[in-house]
Design a protein around this nucleic acid. Structure first.
Length: 915
RNA sequence: GGUCGCUUGGCUCAGUUGGUUAGAGCAUACGAUUCACAUUCGUAAGGUCGGUGGUUCGAGUCCACCAGCGACCACCA
């Protein structure tokens, strides 16, 4: 068959067209797959795409996530599983709001200038724009996700789920409203969850002072301005220095009125830190708040939500920023002789993970989820007198949810064990509004108000909705199941009915794999486990595959400020999506960071082109193109060998992908295509000829196993075959029965082949390859022009038949004109020599031989062999080795020894002859 | 302070329950260009697997300690 195929693969020309064909085929939707049947799906594979934030553009991190997920999705689709990859976007309340605030700030406006409604309009407008960008970019990566099921955390259905779940948790007593110390970001004007707070090393000052001249204890603090709100001094009960003061009450006045300071004992106080005495500021420290609560002390809030001092701080301080107030009160201590000393210290400053502003701990009335309360939930197998925390630990401990790599389990456990009640309300405008109304007249709390306008208790119409919104993780924690619930929720009377009657939820939940970065294990993964086990009574996913962070060549994090980020779209434009995908997959290990740089992508572009040319050659050289279903008959040793290699490839790639070893699978394919098929088999096929069936068989299988990695080029080549079907929904090839791929046998398979017969074939073929390489080596050594044909004499007794049968190959690939086989060969001065196990090769050089050089080469080889033989002999003479090592290993070592001794003898002989 | 990870040729990394003379790719050196592919082909050089001990017949692989690097968590007022 002669077909015009371009010499080089042009990704730009191909990719968008191919994506369109896929999308139009409808096979991204599992309902349209050939395996889709009515009712139960015996074999499904489901991934919920971690929704990219609805801000801005896709970066390389997204590209890698899409590459891994599409790899799994396409592999499982080929395995004929009913495969769903559900895409979507996250409103990411705090991130998005911050972003839009920045945009309008450039216009010289604040959100207050616009007002809540107008501001939200701007946000929605912005979100729509970036969602479009994201959708296009996700397509660019070749993602085979089901766009018909796309969801958005803020769409109607998902918002309804959020409201219903809030109500459910409230009724189960898991959600309460409480006045507690929260992490407050004065810039965002909102609370943050504990894990949304980051820490930054900074230089600070440690002030040692007394409240007044007659106060008996010196206190140390880094934040003197908070001391205006002190109500006690805590010391360790074992501390002899302070024992006499415990229980006493002193009166102090720092300028904001007279306060009582009580000396209390608390075993959490570190006697060795600072002065061993701690000024208790209940309003602005979590620990202090707890102490105050236990000792029934008042809370004085001296810092407000705007990050400035309150009226309670006294008129000297009111309105000052914390930094201004800090200096002012320090000066007051100095002026009044109360300051004992000031020291420089390193301290960890708490900052907001979105805007880097300093976090102020403040007392505030917020909504919380109680993670320690034990509940029993009817029909939920997890919640039988268990707390959220307990279930979160249980499902991972019992490996219902498997974390890959396993070591991250430990991080998960330690995070869950230290989990405190989760503050879910935020004072942001953008997000799901807390579905609670308060009656201004009687104080009644109304949940999920539907139509009634009046308070059900006092009939007052003076009711107001809570102005807060939910933590973005509260809604994204429901992502795996909320996205599978029927979009039309109005049909159902209750939430339970809605859940029970959603076909996708029944069919596709729990999902198979959650693929995400290790950085959001607590932030998101843990919360999905929490929400899903509670609401659905199922785990959200069976496996969590955690990928690493992407770094540049120097190992630095990619960031805008460093300007070292690689733009995936630019790389796609330059090298093609397949090349980018391969460079992100190969070389990556779960949980390990990956360095990405342009040369690497370029290298895989070369590979993609190599594949293109392999297929170009095969398609142009075969007489007729057809799909080869059955393993063709082997006619020659090379045929046997390549067919065996295909079996091994198919089996090992399948096994590696099933076990999340993506990189190894990719390497195996790369090696097969380039070093086995192209470099050897295609060259041999040129000599042996008549291999159409095997060539097509090999190529078809190669394309299918490579398709999950490099979907575009494989589909395009498949198209060039002229087949009607898409490779995307082909069947994953069968491997020959002799290759059993369970883990125990894996090593055996890779190293010596599967059966003895197969191993012999591999061994024979290896010998022929080595002979050719040795001849080429001699040619290169003596700088003989490749066009010049040489004569060779081969001495072999055991392998005589084998070599004779492969003579044509050796002649062609070694560029040998005349190949003579003899049983014994006397030295000849103008011949260079190579010694292989059981075979001696003499290449005629017609006077070109440099006897000294030849001798040096052989001496070097002799030295190596002697060392090797010595080691082997020592090993085999070692009685304990012979007694304890497995027979197989001993046998192996013995064979090696015989072979090497044989070679050594021949090398020595030759050296003598050169003297 | 706690936890985890990394350290393999010049660079980036594989190496799956311990057993091939430790493997790739890039870079390097030498040679090749009508014949699928210079986005190519051939050949070579380059590593005592961070250090020290230990377990074992056998350690890159397991254990202990040490060193360097990195990440995460927790925070001390």
């Amino acid at each position: 068959m002669k077909k015009e195929i371009p010499k080089a693969y042009d990704a730009r020309e191909v990719e968008d067209k191919v994506y369109k064909i896929w999308e139009d085929s409808g096979f991204f939707n599992p309902d349209n797959l050939p395996c889709a049947g009515e009712g139960k799906t015996p074999d499904k594979f489901v991934i919920s795409m971690p929704p990219p934030n609805a801000t801005g553009i896709l970066h390389l991190g997204h590209a890698s996530m899409l590459a891994y997920q599409d790899l799994m999705v396409r592999f499982n689709r080929l395995k004929q599983k009913q495969t769903l990859w559900l895409p979507g976007t996250d409103h990411a309340s705090i991130a998005t709001q911050t972003k839009v605030e920045k945009i309008i700030a450039e216009e010289g406006k604040t959100k207050y200038d616009l007002g809540r409604e107008k501001f939200l309009e701007r946000v929605h407008e912005y979100v729509e724009g970036s969602q479009d960008t994201i959708r296009n970019q996700v397509r660019k990566m070749g993602s085979s996700c089901d766009w018909s099921r796309e969801r958005y955390t803020l769409d109607e259905g998902l918002s309804e789920v959020v409201k219903e779940v809030f109500e459910m948790m409230y009724k189960d007593g898991l959600i309460y409203r409480g006045d507690r110390i929260v992490n407050w970001c004065p810039r965002c004007e909102s609370t943050l969850a504990d894990d949304e707070v980051e820490h930054q090393e900074t230089k600070g000052k440690f002030y040692f002072f007394r409240y007044s001249k007659d106060f008996p204890i010196t206190i140390a603090t880094t934040r003197p301005e908070t001391k205006l709100g002190d109500v006690a001094v805590a010391v360790n009960p074992k501390d002899e220095k302070y024992k006499e003061f415990v229980g006493k009450i002193y009166k102090i006045n720092l300028g904001n009125g007279e306060h009582e300071i009580k000396i209390i004992a608390d075993r959490n106080v570190d006697m060795t830190f600072g002065t061993g005495a701690l000024g208790v500021t209940p309003a602005h420290s979590m620990v202090d708040f707890q102490m105050a609560h236990e000792n029934d002390l008042p809370v004085i809030k001296v810092i407000g939500e705007d990050g400035r001092m309150t009226a309670e701080a006294g008129e000297d301080y009111e309105g000052l920023t914390t930094v201004e107030a800090r200096e002012k009160i320090a000066q007051y201590f100095r002026d009044n002789g109360l300051m004992e000393k000031e020291e420089e210290v390193d301290q960890n400053l708490s900052i907001c993970y979105r805007c880097d502003a300093t976090i102020e701990p403040l007392p505030s009335l917020q909504w919380f989820i109680d993670v320690n309360k034990k509940i029993t939930k009817e029909g939920n197998k997890y919640f039988q007198d268990k707390s959220l925390k307990e279930v979160m630990l249980q499902v991972v401990r019992e490996r219902e949810v498997k974390i890959i790599p396993e070591r991250f389990e430990k991080a998960y456990f330690s995070w869950v064990e230290n989990l405190r009640d989760w503050c879910i309300s935020r004072q942001l405008w953008f997000g799901h509004r807390v579905p609670v109304w308060y009656c201004e007249d009687c104080g009644e709390i109304i949940l999920n108000k539907k139509d009634e306008e009046a308070c059900p208790k006092c009939k007052s119409e003076n009711i107001k909705q809570d102005s807060d919104t939910f933590d973005t993780w509260f809604s994204s924690g429901m992502w795996t199941f909320s996205t599978l619930m029927d979009k039309d929720f109005t049909k159902y009377n209750t939430f339970e009915e809605w859940m029970k009657s959603s076909p996708d939820l029944a069919k596709f939940h729990p999902t198979s794999v959650m693929e995400t970065g290790y950085d959001i294990l607590p932030l998101w993964v843990a919360r999905m486990i929490l929400m899903t086990t509670y609401v659905v009574g199922e785990i959200p996913f069976e496996n969590v595959y955690l990928h690493g962070m992407l770094r540049d060549k120097e190992g630095r994090k990619m960031s805008k400020s460093l300007g070292n980020g690689i733009d995936p779209l630019e790389m796609i434009e330059k090298y093609g999506t397949d090349a980018l995908r391969l460079s992100l997959i190969v070389g990556s290990a779960p949980g390990n960071d990956l360095k990405v740089y342009e040369e690497k992508i370029e290298n895989y572009r070369n590979f993609v082109n190599k594949l293109w040319n392999i297929s170009r050659y095969i398609l142009m050289s075969v007489k007729e193109v057809g799909q080869i279903e059955k393993r063709p008959e082997a006619k020659t040793l090379a045929d046997e060998w390549i067919l065996g290699e295909i079996d091994i490839l198919v089996a090992s790639v399948g096994n590696n992908l099933e076990n999340f070893r993506f990189s190894l699978a990719g390497e195996d394919i790369y090696d097969f295509a380039w070093s086995k098929l192209a470099d050897w088999y295609l060259e041999i096929a040129k000599v042996e000829g008549d291999k159409d069936e095997i060539l097509l068989y090999a190529l078809e299988r190669l394309l299918i196993v490579l398709h999950p990695f490099a979907p575009f080029v494989t589909e395009e080549i498949w198209k060039n075959f002229g087949f009607d079907n898409l490779i995307m929904i082909e069947k994953w090839p069968e491997s020959s029965v002799s290759v059993k791929m369970n883990i125990d046998e894996y090593r055996t398979v890779r190293i010596v082949g599967c059966s003895e017969e197969d191993a012999a074939i591999r061994g024979d073929f290896e010998l022929i390859k080595n002979m050719i390489t040795s001849i080429r080596n001699i040619r290169a050594e003596y700088k003989i022009e490749p066009v010049k044909k040489l004569k060779a004499v081969i001495v072999s007794i055991d392998k005589k038949d084998l070599i004779e049968s492969q003579a044509e190959i050796i002649k062609f690939l070694g560029r040998i004109e005349e190949l003579e086989m003899v049983d014994k060969f006397e030295k000849s001065d103008d011949m260079a020599m190579a010694v292989l196990p059981g075979v001696e090769i003499f290449v005629s050089l017609e006077g070109l031989v440099d006897r000294e050089k030849e001798r040096q080469n052989l001496l070097k080889e002799k030295e190596n062999l002697e060392k090797f033989v010595k080691n082997l002999e020592a090993k085999l003479e070692n009685e304990t080795f012979v007694a304890k090592a497995p027979a197989k290993i001993i046998e192996q070592e013995k064979t090696k020894l015989t072979d090497s001794k044989d070679r050594l003898g021949k090398v020595e002989e030759k050296i003598k002859s050169l003297l």
